[in-house]
Write a protein that binds this DNA or RNA. Structure first.
Lengths: 136, 136
DNA sequence: ATCCTACGATGGACAGAGTCTAAGTCAAGA
DNA sequence: TCTTGACTTAGACTCTGTCCATCGTAGGAT
């Protein structure tokens, strides 16, 4: 966490209290908050932080590769701080809960050349859907 | 196509001109229109059709399993009439073009039990991203 | 320690996508 | 042909996200 802030400062990031709070809110495993949820939690620590700043900071963290943007439901995007460990997502169709999962195999390898239609494929995103224990 | 309309009428669907036009607009291979695009094309055939009706009809077609809803980019959802043939999507990061593709293997099989966290997993959605020939 | 200034924060207006509602219309069964 | 409840309509509304002009401040320079 403090690693993250140090790393970003090394890249010329100006370390403001707002950015610090956003980064702190995003810390942890299996965290997948929407921008509004991040804003709500940040507000508890720093009452005057604005929505625009939260959006800006999240956008920067995504560009810097420190956070992954996930849109699982066509509603609000969610932000996943687990960016340095490749993983996929398991989403509950009932309550929307998200878990990070690590499937076997390489899904990229499953797309044969004749199914690539001349595209340069560089990334695969897999979403497993189902019901979590509480919703089942 | 007329099969579709007959099938839906058999399920108690009232066959209105608006619904017919929406279904016609969605007909074809590799069709992935947004709701607004569907509305624009429907308007050419039926000038007074409203946005709400297009949204309602698309939602019904999705619930009935005749159309798949795809949200590839966190922008507008797209509607894919190719619902009876299991497939995945290849999306161009440049222009947003979507192709239907059929990868090898069963991605569901790649998620081991210890990575399911008690979820009842029923569906997998795979999105390949890259650049199409024109954008590369 | 203080000063400067460019980078960052603020909040309010704006935009795009989608939902809701109240009132009017019409498909299709009697 | 009549009736009725399902469907459609227009527009207001919500939610998510972006933009902009102005103000504030982190951190290097002195």
């Amino acid at each position: 966490m403090s690693d993250l802030l140090e790393r970003l400062r090394g890249r010329g990031w100006r370390l403001t209290s707002q950015r610090r709070v956003v980064a702190e809110v995003l810390d942890g495993d299996h965290v997948h908050l929407t921008a509004d949820e991040v804003h709500a939690r940040a507000t508890q620590r720093l009452p005057e932080i604005s929505r625009a700043t939260v959006y800006n900071t999240l956008g920067e963290l995504v560009s810097l590769g420190e956070v992954i943007e996930v849109s699982t439901d066509g509603r609000a995007k969610r932000y996943d701080p687990n960016a340095h460990q490749p993983h996929q997502h398991l989403v509950c169709s009932g309550c929307g809960t998200i878990r990070d999962v690590r499937p076997l195999g390489d899904p990229l390898a499953d797309l044969p050349a004749d199914q690539r239609f001349g595209f340069t494929v560089s990334e695969v995103e897999v979403t497993y859907r189902g019901l979590c224990p509480s919703c089942a």
